[in-house]
């Protein structure tokens, strides 16, 4: 798979990553190489093979009791926040 500049710009947008003009050709090249590399999987016959999402085959999800275990710690948790006002995380205006 050979990606175009447009492809990579599209992927970067979907992933919300700013890529500079200088970086773009580097990613076009390396992402194309990586995709070509992984395409060797296409040669494998996987008909009737179940996909494996998880190494713990046969394990199932544990269910927790419905109980409140947490207390209000927003001041501590917001210690890492870049911008907070009135206990809210502040972002540029969300337009709906």
């Amino acid at each position: 798979m050979s990606l175009s500049r447009r492809d990579v710009e599209g992927i970067a947008h979907l992933a919300r990553l700013e890529i500079t003009e200088g970086e773009l050709p580097v990613y076009v090249d390396s992402l194309s190489k990586i995709l070509s590399f992984v395409e060797q999987l296409n040669a494998v016959d996987t008909q009737a093979v179940e996909p494996m999402a998880h190494p713990l085959e046969g394990e199932t999800q544990r269910l927790r009791p419905d109980a409140v275990t947490e207390t209000d710690q927003h001041a501590k948790f917001q210690g890492n926040a870049p911008l907070v006002a009135q206990a809210l995380y502040v972002v540029p205006k969300v337009i709906e």
Binding site: I11, L14, A15, L31, L35, V38, L41, N42, V44, T46, V49, E50, P51, M52, A53
Partner: peptide, 22 residues
């Protein structure tokens, strides 16, 4: 992002999960 995106999921991600099974 690419291997999960619409139109490529089966060819890349699902395929890899199957090979992982093998």
């Amino acid at each position: 992002t690419y291997v999960l995106s619409a139109g490529y999921y089966d060819a890349y991600y699902l395929k890899a999960q199957k090979v992982r099974s093998l």
